[in-house]
Write a protein that binds this DNA or RNA. Structure first.
Length: 305
DNA sequence: ATCCAGGAACTGT
DNA sequence: ACAGTTCATGGA
C-alpha cells in the first residue's frame, strides 16, 4: 500500500490506470445497496476494525484517494487498517497495464476498455461477505438479491448512526453461525440458501475456512477446488469469489448470466452466446478474464439492461 | 400468466 | 463425465 497518514485523514496513492469516478459509478449501480452510500461524490463506508466501528468518507482527489473519518478520528493502527481495506476494495495492488494492452487488440473489449478506463474490479475484501453475496445471488434476479441482502444486513449487522444516516457493516460470522434455518427463511431465503450460508458461517467460525487458507493454496486450480468443496459453492460462485475477493485476475465465471447478456447486447446478437462462443471471444483474455468480465458487467449499466 | 434470474445439489444413467 | 430434475421466489 502506497499511503500517507495525515492523522485526521489518510491519503492513498493508487498505481496508474485508476479513475476514482469510474469506480464510484460502479458502486452507484444499485439504490438498494446497504453496505455503502454515496453523497456529493463521496463514498461513505462503515468498517469494523478490531471491534470498533469506524465511518470512512472516501473521496477522489486528483491522483490520490482521501479517506476522512467524519464520526471520530481513529487510532494510528485503525487508520492504517482502513487504508488497507480501501486499497483492497478498489483492487489497487493490481497493475492493469497488461489488461489494457490486451484489450486494445481485442474486438470485444476494445471499446469498453477505453470507455471505462481506470475502472477496477470493486472487490469484497471480506470472504464471508463475498460468499454470502454470491450465494444470495444464485438463480434469482439482482433486484431481489439486493432485497435479500438488505434484510440480512439490517437484521443481523451492526450499525452506526451519524448525521441522521444509519450505516451498516456486514453481519459477523459469529452471529450468523448461531442462527437457525428459520431465521433466514422467514426473510424469504430459500431453505437451501439458508443452509449454505449458516454452514459457511460455521466453517469460518471454527477456522476451517479462512481467506488465508485459500490464498495459501498452490495455484488457482487448487483454490477453486477448495472453494467448490464447500456446500453451496459451485463453479460460478467459486469463480465469482476468486474474482471479487481473492484478487485472481484469471478467474472466469463463464456461465454468468450477466456476462451472457452483456455480450449479447454489446455484439448485437439475437440470442445469448453459447459457452463455446464465449470461449472463442475470450481466447485473448488469458490472465485477464476477471477484468474482461467486470468491464462487460459495467457495460450493462449504461442501457439499464 | 409466463418466463427468467449474476446456480447448485441431487439423481439416474 | 453428463443430462435431467428440483429447489424457491420475485421482477418484468
Amino acid at each position: 500500500m502506497n499511503w500517507v497518514d495525515h492523522e485526521t485523514y489518510i491519503e492513498l496513492y493508487p498505481p496508474a490506470e485508476f479513475d476514482f469516478k469510474e469506480c464510484r459509478i460502479f458502486l452507484e449501480r444499485s439504490d438498494q445497496e446497504v453496505l455503502h452510500q454515496i453523497k456529493d461524490g463521496a463514498v461513505y463506508k462503515l468498517l469494523e476494525i478490531k471491534g470498533s466501528l469506524i465511518l470512512c468518507k472516501v473521496v477522489g482527489s486528483g491522483h490520490s484517494i482521501k479517506i476522512e473519518f467524519p464520526a471520530k478520528t481513529p487510532s494510528v493502527l485503525e487508520r492504517k487498517k482502513a487504508g488497507e481495506y480501501v486499497w483492497e476494495w478498489f483492487d489497487l495492488e493490481c497493475d492493469l497495464s497488461g489488461f489494457y494492452q490486451m484489450a486494445a487488440q481485442d474486438e470485444v473489449l476494445k471499446t469498453v476498455a477505453r470507455k471505462y478506463g481506470g475502472l477496477r474490479i470493486m472487490c469484497m475484501p471480506d470472504l464471508f461477505e463475498a460468499l454470502v453475496w454470491a450465494i444470495i445471488g444464485q438463480q434469482i434476479n439482482l433486484a431481489f438479491a439486493y432485497t435479500l441482502k438488505k434484510r440480512f444486513v439490517e437484521q443481523f449487522g451492526e450499525s452506526l448512526t451519524f448525521g441522521g444516516d444509519k450505516f451498516f457493516v456486514f453481519p459477523s460470522v459469529h452471529k450468523i453461525a448461531s442462527l437457525k434455518i428459520e431465521d433466514l427463511t422467514k426473510h424469504q431465503f430459500s431453505t437451501r440458501k439458508a443452509e449454505y450460508i449458516i454452514g459457511i458461517a460455521k466453517d469460518m467460525e471454527s477456522g476451517k475456512l479462512t481467506k488465508e487458507l485459500l490464498l495459501q493454496q498452490q495455484d488457482i486450480h487448487q483454490i477453486r477446488k477448495s472453494l467448490m468443496s464447500i456446500r453451496g459453492v459451485g463453479a460460478w460462485t467459486a469463480d465469482y469469489v476468486m474474482m471479487k475477493c481473492l484478487h485472481q485476475p484469471s478467474a472466469f465465471p463463464i456461465a454468468d448470466v450477466g456476462l451472457h447478456n452483456a455480450l449479447k447486447h454489446l455484439l448485437g446478437l439475437k440470442q445469448k452466446p453459447t459457452l463455446n462462443e464465449i470461449e472463442r471471444y475470450g481466447v485473448n483474455w488469458e490472465g485477464w478474464q476477471a477484468y474482461a468480465v467486470f468491464y462487460l458487467w459495467r457495460s450493462l449499466y449504461d442501457n439499464k439492461l
